[in-house]
Design a protein around this nucleic acid. Sequence first.
DNA 1: ATAGTTGCAAAAGTTTTGCATTGTA
DNA 2: TACAATGCAAAACTTTTGCAACTAT
Lengths: 151, 151
Amino acid sequence: MGWHVTVTNTLMTGAQTTEPGDMGGRLKAAGLRPTRQRLHLGELLFRKGDRHVTAEMLHEEAVSSGERVSLATVYNTLHQFCAAGLLRELAIEGSKAYFDTNTSNHNHFYLEKENQLIDIAGDTIRVAGVPTPPEGTIISHIDVVIRLVSK
Amino acid sequence: MGWHVTVTNTLMTGAQTTEPGDMGGRLKAAGLRPTRQRLHLGELLFRKGDRHVTAEMLHEEAVSSGERVSLATVYNTLHQFCAAGLLRELAIEGSKAYFDTNTSNHNHFYLEKENQLIDIAGDTIRVAGVPTPPEGTIISHIDVVIRLVSK
DNA sequence: ATAGTTGCAAAAGTTTTGCATTGTA
DNA sequence: TACAATGCAAAACTTTTGCAACTAT
């Protein structure tokens, strides 16, 4: 059995989230009440193009920018946004969840030293040779993480 | 630019860890003193073929089998084994580290419902189209996790 | 002795839960 | 007024650290 793979070389250029629009509308469309905290967190997440944040980072940012919000609410909001399809959760490192504002199919470089994630556009990397999944299961999604170290 | 990939379909059959041998020797070879706890944890890890464990799971197993050992020591031991190249740490799920007794290059199915990992032999999956890493960095390692859900 | 190592109690870090409060109809 | 949804303090869970006890010269 053969296979053809066209190799491209594209990094994502950021800022291709669905249009920031008015947060209120977006939240309602997702079935979430547009509360003060959610509006503020939504602005922080989606105003600046594609982002990879931890709960701790977003909380710090919210507090710095003047919003009174607890870390617990940031966690709950991030999970609600995930459930609503506005965010995707990434497992990159034990004991710390990252949330990605880009929910389309794509992959990541991870710079271990800097704890930094860089998007790789979804049509760049090809994965071939995936075995048939065990009986009774189907593939939900394939994660590829390319771990980088300093040269 | 073209590419050929031969698609195989191989799951790992387990029990292909480097020979269990005597743990004492293995630990010494890795530069670790063969203490009672390390010997016992090493037996649990390497006697049974390839395994994917969390610290909590291994601790529970050790205690059940009669060893007096704290969870902290299990963590420390797992990390020492990793540093010595006897184990590899996997980031599969936020906030829980898995340790794999198979340190060779291979990939994983992850069954979300059961929290179960299944090895896929290293020569099965091919990843093509990886972009050039950012200046000053090199690829240390590519993780592919195929997430499964019940049909 | 003593220099280095080990194992664990306690501390730190991360995430989830329970419920008083708020918001909506 | 009733009913559901929200936000956060507190609880739970996961991991790391500091140091007393131990080991091997």
